[in-house]
Amino acid sequence: MLNQELKKEDLSEPVDIRAVDGGGWLYSDIVKDHFFNPRNFMKWGEEETFKHNAMGRVGSPACGDEMVLWIKVDPKTEKITECRWRTFGCGSAIASTSMLSEMITENNGMKLEDATKIKPQDILLRLGGLPDRKIHCSVLGDKALQAAVNDYFRQTSQHQRIITVGSKVIDKVLNITDKDIEEAVLEGARSLEDLQKKLKVGVGDPDSVPAIEELLRFYNEKYYGN
């Protein structure tokens, strides 16, 4: 069988297409490296032996991205000593999870307290950027991490430490929250018009428009710096 002749290792060092045709790649070199040489992903069969003490899952294949993160936490230092992940998603989703796994385990591991503070743009920065419309993928990484840390708190009966990201209903008619607006901005909505195209927000509830515009400014500044 042909496919058995090709070992998996062969796939980790693919031919550089740019050397052949001189064209640029879609993503940064770092993204490319993490996509083709993903760090810390959970191999088949490894679940039984890895002995994680918490797990976080976010997304679903239906929405195009799904991510699962397993973490090992040292209860004394509260540092993440090891982690594993699996991701269903495009190149940038895979690369950003791989990068996140490196960020939280490097230098003897990140403290849980710091891990919960990781923002999508921290991952972006380390990846050397992503195309605007791809940013929502790496947002999943920090959400999966948040879920895993919360799971750790739950497992260790530290319920008071569980962080719930409260979302606030902005458009009462369509029940659209600030989270929805954040997501839409991450998917490229830069103006009220873009936002309305995506969410129909504010159409049924005109009173919410000032609040929507404020959130739009806030998230645009947060993710795009303008």
């Binding site: 998996k8 796939l11 992903f41 991701t87």
Partner: peptide, 11 residues
Amino acid sequence: AIVERLREMSP
């Protein structure tokens, strides 16, 4: 092999 590689990474 590519499909298998990506499946291995997929939840």
